[in-house]
Structure formats: C-alpha cells, structure tokens
C-alpha cells in the first residue's frame, strides 16, 4: 500500500491584512500552521518591514548603524533609501524621539515627520510610538490623524492606552498593533477589549512581545505557537489576527551583537554574529507563526527572505 502523507486540516483561518494604498503589502490568510502549504492554503509570504527612526540611532551597534550612516540623519532620506535601494516592502518608523526620557518631542512634531515620510514613499508605513504608555496615547493619536486614509499600521496599543489609540486608528482607517507582555491570556483579553470598542478584529495585528535568541525567545515562540493553534484548532476569532515580531530592537541591544572580537575572540566575527543573530531570531519566530517582521540589517533581511523562498 502506498504511503499517504497525513494531513492536518483546521476549521480556523488567520485574517488576511492589506496595508498601504499605492504599493500595498498583504500578509496572513493561511488556514494551516506556518509554511504547511502541503496541508492547506498559504496565500501570502510573511512581510518584512525595515525599521527606521526619527532620530539618529546613536544606540544601535556599529554593525547596523554604519549601514545607514549616510541616511539616518533624516527619516525621509532614510525611508527613501530603504524603499529605493534596499527594495523594502514596508517601512516601520519608530518615533523614538517622542519618549520623555529622550528628546520628548511633541505629538505635532511626530505628525509632521510622519507626513514628510509618507510624502516621500509609496510602500506601506508602520508607525510606532516610543513604547511609553502615556506619551504614546497622545503621539499615536496625532500621527493617526496625520496619516489619515493611508492604511498604515499604528502601534502599539497596550492595556494601559488602547482606548485612545484604537479610537484614533479606527477613525482614520488604519490597522492596529495590540501588544501584551508574553501572556497568551492577556493577549486574547486585549484583543477582546479592543474589539468591544467597535474596532474590527480583521484590522488587528497581535504582538505577543518579542525577545531575542538567548533572551527569552522560547517564551515568545511558545506564546505565538499557542496563539496560532488557538486560531486554527479552536477557531478562536480573537486569536486570528496575524502576528508581529518586532525583531530588530530586541536583537540589536544584546551583548552578542555588540561585544567586540578582541574582548571575546571565541565568539567569532562581530558583524557576522549580529546579522546571524537577527536572522535566526526572525526565522524562529516565522516558524512559530509571525506574519509580519520588523528588522534592521539588510543582510539579515536577505537571509530571512531566502529562508522564506525555500519554505514557500
């Protein structure tokens, strides 16, 4: 008797999300576990967005800082570089300068930056706050309005600020990232609370909180895997939005991407180490269910795109 490969099919399906207006990007839509196209439908590749900031990235390690040395002084030029030279499919603008402990720039300043960047690019834009719960609730409202109808992703709404941010994203026709801190039950709860405000669940993106290889990656992996299983096996609509892995910011702050070769010669080439670390963290999270990645180093992005090519 011929061997038949067992197939697992599910009742649930991940929501398909389209972002951008001119050039769009689409992700999600699968009704199987990551890359299991032999069991069902995987209509879209995961999307990788290049991360840029609204201030010079002084705290990025040399390996990734020098790639953007000539463009990172101006977010508009930086965005255009990612789009035109690196062929970015999407750009993630982090408004770090608005953080009270940084430059504490105003929501109006942030809105202007967003408008300028949007005017310069035609790929979709992900607009991220500084991850300061109170400040984000004013900054993200202002930038949502500034980017009205541009079909951006606004993020991140958290338990402490989701009401204002979700309302602004809803009023200005954006998608929304809902982030909770590595707890599947709280992740579901936040998605419920946001949808109870009237926000369409099919416009949500779940961020269960990222972590780098060696720094709790297995927790993120496990939560993502369980979210995806709840979406597929239990047909749990609150867990069916696609998932975001905000990889770059977690990878490029750890020792392994910064410690010099003279300090730790047995760790090998620093540049290669950092790039590999970002690529491995990203691919691991793709395997656990992420459909949208935010990354920094072009070589790491290339490696992950190649990995996706092989699995699609």
């Amino acid at each position: 008797m011929a061997f038949a490969i067992p197939k697992e099919t599910f009742s649930g399906k991940v929501f398909e999300v389209t972002i951008g207006t001119d050039k769009t990007a689409v992700f999600g839509g699968e009704n199987v576990l990551p890359f299991h196209s032999f069991e069902g439908s995987v209509p879209h590749r995961p999307v990788i967005a290049y991360e840029i900031q609204d201030i010079v990235p002084d705290d990025w390690p040399e390996t990734v800082k020098k790639v953007y040395e000539s463009v990172s002084g101006d977010p508009v030029i930086w965005a255009k570089y990612c789009q035109d030279t690196l062929n970015a499919k999407a750009i993630a603008l982090r408004l770090l300068s608005t953080h009270p402990d940084r430059e504490n720039r105003s929501p109006e300043d942030a809105a202007k930056t967003v408008k300028d960047v949007l005017a310069a690019i035609n790929v979709p834009l992900i607009i991220l706050g500084s991850n300061h719960v109170e400040k984000d609730s004013s900054v993200l409202v202002a930038v949502s309005e500034a980017a009205k109808d541009k079909n951006c992703i606004i993020g991140k709404a958290q338990e402490g600020n989701y009401k204002t941010i979700a309302a602004a994203a809803m009023a200005n026709n954006h998608k929304l990232v809902a982030m909770s801190e590595l707890d599947i039950n709280l992740s579901k709860q936040l998605n419920i609370l946001i949808t109870q405000m009237g926000f369409d669940k099919e416009r949500l993106i779940t961020d269960p909180m990222c972590s780098a290889l060696g720094y709790g990656l297995e927790y993120t992996y496990s939560v993502m895997e369980r979210i995806r299983l709840a979406a597929l096996t239990q047909n749990d609509a609150t867990m069916q939005p696609p998932m975001l892995a905000d990889v770059g910011m977690y990878v490029w702050k750890i020792k392994e991407t910064q410690a010099s070769e003279s300090e730790l010669p047995h760790w090998g080439c620093l540049a290669e180490r950092g790039i590999t670390w970002e690529a491995v963290t990203a691919t691991s999270l793709l395997m656990s269910g992420a459909e949208l990645l935010i990354m920094r180093h072009p070589e790491a992005v290339k490696a992950v795109e190649k990995f996706i090519d092989e699995l699609m």
Partner: peptide, 12 residues
C-alpha cells in the same frame, strides 16, 4: 481547555 481563557471570556 476547549477555548482559550481571557478575563472577558463570558462576554465573547
């Protein structure tokens, strides 16, 4: 364990 727990599970 047929549906995932959330504090608002009764409202869904």
């Amino acid at each position: 364990n047929k549906t995932l727990y959330a504090h608002s599970y009764l409202e869904m």
